[in-house]
Design a protein around this nucleic acid. Structure first.
Lengths: 203, 203, 203, 203
DNA sequence: GATGAATGAGTCTTCATTCAT
DNA sequence: AATGAATGAAGACTCATTCAT
C-alpha cells in the first residue's frame, strides 16, 4: 500500500529516464554522472536510487525502454496488410526510427550506438538486445516469406538471409546517419532499388 | 642512430596501441584504465604518457590506427579490375572486416561499435571518422558508376544512393554480427541477391 | 484506555528492541541500518522514530535493556543465603550470562562486546555502563566481606580487590567465550580452584 | 625495483597505521572516516590506498599490528626463568598491556575492545585474533604445567582450565580498566591471592 | 497517529595525470 | 630519458532523519 500512487511512480520513473537519456546522449553513458541525471530530473540522489538501484540498472532500464519505444513504433509497419514491397518497408522502418529524433534531447540513432557499445561489456544488456533484435529479425523473415509468395523476392532465396540483409540495412542506416548525418531513409530505398539488375534482360 | 630510435619508437607505439585495444575491447573505452594499458604494455606510466599525452589521444590514435588497418585491407578490394559485381564486392568487404578478428584480442567489429559510440561525444574522433567513411563512400560511389556502365545497376539510379546503401549494409553487418553473432558475409550477399525480383514478370 | 495503550506501547518498544538486537548482533552496531531494524520490526520508519528519537537513543536503550536483563538474572545469585563459595558464585554468574544466549538471535556475550566498544566513544553509554558495573562490583565486594567472615577469603585481603578480580574473571570469560568459543563457566571455576596452592606447605 | 626504499615504505605504512589508531581510538572504527586517517597521516587518499586497498584492510592491519606489539611485549614475561608465581605473572602481563598506553593517542585497552567488537562481524579479523589468543593461551597452559611441578598449582587441576582462567583474568582486566578506569594490575594480583583459602584449616 | 517517500550530506574509493628522483 | 609514487578531484552510492499526506 504505497503512499504514492502507481501513476505517480510511473511518472517519476519516466522523469528520471528522460533526464538520463538527455544526458546520456549528450555525454555518453559513462561520462554522464549520476549527479547529472539527478539534477536533470530535479530530484535527490536518494529518490533516484529508490527507483533505480544502480547506474547500471538505470542504463539497462533506459535501453530497455528505448527498445520498447522502437518496437511500438516499428511494429505496425510490419503488421500492415497488404505488406509493402521490400524497399518501401525498409523506408518505413527507417523513417519510424528517424522520427524518434523528434523529441527534444532524444536522438534514437545516437542512443542506439551507445547501447550497442555498452552491450559489448554488459551481459544483461546484451541479452536484452538479443531479446529485441532476434524477434524483430524473425518478423522480417516472415515478411520475406510473404514477399516470395508475392513474387517480390526470388523464390529460391533464403528468407533468413533476406531478413539478415534488411536488418543490416536498417542498422547500418542508423550508424551512417549518426556518424555522417547526410543519409535519408529514401536514399537507402532508392539505392536498394538501383541495386536490382540494370539492363533490360533484367527486371 | 636516429633511425634505430625511430624504429624503437614505432615499435613502442604499436605495443602500447595493442595493449590498449586488447583492454578496450574487453572492458570498453571508459572502463579501461590507463593503468590497465600501462601494465598490459609492460611499461611505466611515464613512458606511455611520453607517447600519448592523454587517454583521449590514445583513444584517438587507436581508432585512427584501426581505421587505417581497415583501409589497407579493404582498399585493394575496391581497386580490383574488373570490378566484382555488387553482391560480390559487398561480401569481400565484409569478409575483410571479419578477418580482422583473427588477431587475438582484436575484434574489429566490437572495436567499431566502441569507436562509433565514443564519436558521439568526441568531436576530434567524429571528424576522424568522417575523414575515413566519407572517402570510403566516395569510392563506393565510383564503383556504382562503373556498375551502371556494366549494366549491373540501374542506369537511372543515383550512384550516391547506391553507395549509401552499400555502406549501410556493411556497417549494419558489423553491428548485427557483433550483437547477434550469427551472421556471415555470404548471408548478406545471398540476401541481397534474393531481394532482386523473384520472377521475370518482375515487380 | 490509556492502560491498553501503555501495554501496546511497551510491546511495541520491546518488539523494536528485539529487532534491533537481532541485527546488531549479526552485523554490529554501525553496519546495522535503521532500515534493517525498521523492517525487522515490521513497522514504519515514523513508528520506530516515535519510540526512539535517534539511532543513538535506540542503541542506548538496547544496551540499558540488556544490562537490566543481566541484573535480573544475576541479582538473585548474589542474594542467595548462605552465600556460595567464590568459585561457585563465579560459576553461577557466568552460567547466568551464558544462559542468555538461549534466545534466538541474542547472544549476550557478543552484545556485551559491542556495547563496550561503543561505550568508548559514547559518553552517555559509558555512564550507563558505569552505573551498572560499579554497583555490581559493590555487591561483589559485600560478598567478599562475607567470605572473609566465613573464612573463604584471606582475612587481610582487600574486599575491593577481590571484587575487582572476580569482575575481571567474569568479564574476561565473556570475551574469551565470544572470541574463542571454547570456554565453559565450569572451566573457569576449576581453574580458579586450581590456582590455590598445590600442597600443604603451600606458598 | 621500487623507486622508494623498503624503509621508506615501512615508515609510510607505520605513519598511516598510527594515524589510523589515533583516530580509531578516539572515534571508534566505523565513525572514523578514511578522510580522517588520510588527513591525520598527512598524505593523499591515493597514497593511503596504495598501502591499504580498503578500510577493512587497514583495520585488519592495524589490529594485526597491535596484536604483534602485545606479543613482543608480553612474550618475554612468559619466557622468564624461573617462572614467576601465578599472581606475579598475571601482574606482569597486565602491566605490560597497561604500559602500552604510554604512547600518545594509543591506549591498547580501548583498542582491544574495538577489535573484539569488530571481530564479531569480520571473519578475517576473528581468525587473526584466534591466531593470536589461542597460542597465547597455550603458553599459559605450559606455564600452568610448570606451576604444578613447582607446587604452586594443584597437581590434579587441569592446566588448560588454569590457562583459561588466567586469560579470562587478563582480558577482564582490560575490559574493566577501559570501562571503569579504576583498576590496577596489582589490584587483581592481590585479589587473586586473597581468593586463596582464608583460614588455617585452609580449603 | 501512522506512513514511507524523499532528502542530501557524507562515505569509500578510483584513476588520469604529474614530477621528484 | 625513465620510473612509479603521489595527487586530489570526482564519482557512485548510503542512510539517519523528516514531514506531507
Amino acid at each position: 500500500m504505497p503512499k504514492i500512487s502507481d501513476e505517480r511512480r510511473a511518472a517519476r520513473r519516466k522523469q528520471i529516464l528522460e533526464a538520463a537519456w538527455t544526458r546520456f546522449q549528450k555525454q555518453g553513458l559513462h561520462a554522464t554522472t549520476m549527479d547529472d541525471i539527478i539534477r536533470g530530473a530535479g530530484l535527490s540522489a536518494g529518490a533516484v536510487y529508490s527507483y533505480f538501484p544502480s547506474k547500471e540498472d538505470l542504463i539497462l532500464a533506459a535501453v530497455t525502454d528505448s527498445l520498447g519505444g522502437i518496437r511500438d513504433l516499428v511494429g505496425p509497419t510490419l503488421e500492415a496488410r497488404p505488406l509493402p514491397a521490400p524497399d518501401v518497408l525498409v523506408t518505413q522502418i527507417m523513417a519510424a526510427v528517424a522520427s524518434f529524433t523528434a523529441r527534444e534531447g532524444y536522438d534514437l540513432r545516437r542512443i542506439a550506438l551507445l547501447g550497442w557499445s555498452e552491450a559489448q561489456r554488459n551481459d544483461r544488456l546484451r541479452e536484452t538486445m538479443k531479446g529485441f533484435y532476434l524477434p524483430f529479425r524473425a518478423r522480417l523473415e516472415a515478411a520475406a516469406g510473404q514477399w516470395q509468395a508475392d513474387g517480390l523476392v526470388h523464390p529460391q532465396a533464403s528468407a533468413a538471409d533476406v531478413a539478415k540483409t534488411i536488418l543490416a540495412m536498417v542498422l547500418g542506416f542508423v550508424v551512417q546517419s549518426a556518424l555522417l548525418g547526410d543519409v535519408e531513409p529514401a536514399d537507402i530505398s532508392r539505392g536498394l532499388a538501383g541495386l536490382g539488375p540494370g539492363s533490360d534482360r533484367a527486371r
